[in-house]
């Protein structure tokens, strides 16, 4: 397993008196698939939102370790700054740009890695043209990777549910992340689509990305994750390999009751 890239210590998110996330520690290594599971309302998505800058956590530290760079603290950064740092996410309820084409959706992902602005757009400078071509080519190759290249010019809203999920992943990949955060990627998918997703996630991992996913589909979680963290009522109740977690009494209690 590679070196540690993300380290979360004592992360808490309080909404008034509600402790949605309470003192959670988590760490992710290079090229690893980590799953975050727990019953509904356990605080998984809130935890995700803290990591990606949508919420500013009440306590705790989120630290990014990248080889050759100083550790960076992510607390209080805006979502777009977090993405620029190299953490891209998808959403539990699909949030695509419905009136844009599939390709354009992915091209949006390239925004934070490109720089042309008003003048460049109006005068179509050499730099701008080259950049546009790069955006288009890179976006197309990402679509090929997730298997959506035949829908390039379709509207995103016309895709099937499973394809929309994959497009969200493609869009996140376009931001050149080193850590991909997937919020329930398999929700609402049929077994066939889930299997394709399983393969896609493994392929992305093989490209050297780390993946943190929230998922309810236990078969998927157990088969692909290297390590699993379990949350319940905002607290972390267990962590370990799929085998360890499966036999952990606290986890069984959280899922099945006494």
């Amino acid at each position: 397993m590679g070196e540690q890239i993300l380290n979360v210590t004592g992360l808490s998110m309080h909404f008034g008196g509600i402790h949605a996330v309470d003192q959670v520690d988590l760490d992710i290594n290079q090229g690893e698939i980590v799953a975050l599971i727990g019953p509904n309302g356990a605080g998984k998505t809130t935890f995700f939102n803290c990591l990606t800058g949508i919420y500013n956590p009440t306590f705790g530290d989120i630290t990014l370790h990248r080889s050759g760079k100083k550790p960076a603290r992510l607390n209080g950064l805006k979502p777009n700054q977090v993405t620029t740092k190299g953490m891209a996410r998808t959403f539990q309820n699909i949030r695509l740009f419905h009136n844009m084409t599939v390709l354009e959706n992915v091209m949006i992902g390239r925004h934070c890695r490109t720089s042309s602005f008003i003048a460049g757009a109006i005068f179509r400078t050499k730099h701008n043209r080259r950049e546009e071509n790069e955006i288009i080519e890179k976006s197309y190759s990402i679509l090929e990777k997730v298997g959506l290249e035949k829908y390039v010019n379709d509207h995103a809203s016309n895709l099937s549910y499973g394809a929309q999920r994959r497009l969200e992943i493609a869009r996140a990949l376009a931001t050149d992340p080193f850590l991909l955060l997937l919020d329930e990627p398999a929700a609402g998918m049929n077994p066939q689509e889930t299997k394709q997703l399983d393969e896609l996630i493994c392929r992305i991992r093989d490209d050297g990305l780390a993946i943190l996913l929230i998922e309810h589909d236990m078969k998927l979680v157990m088969s692909i994750s290297d390590r699993i963290f379990v949350m319940d009522y905002g607290k972390k109740i267990a962590q370990g390999t799929p085998l360890e977690v499966r036999e952990n009494p606290a986890v069984i209690k959280a899922y099945l009751g006494e």
Binding site: K78, N80, T83, F91, I108, G109, A172
Partner: peptide, 16 residues
Amino acid sequence: IALREDEIACQAMGID
């Protein structure tokens, strides 16, 4: 256009 379509997703894709 992305901002018009979905503000949260737009920010999550790294747009200021």
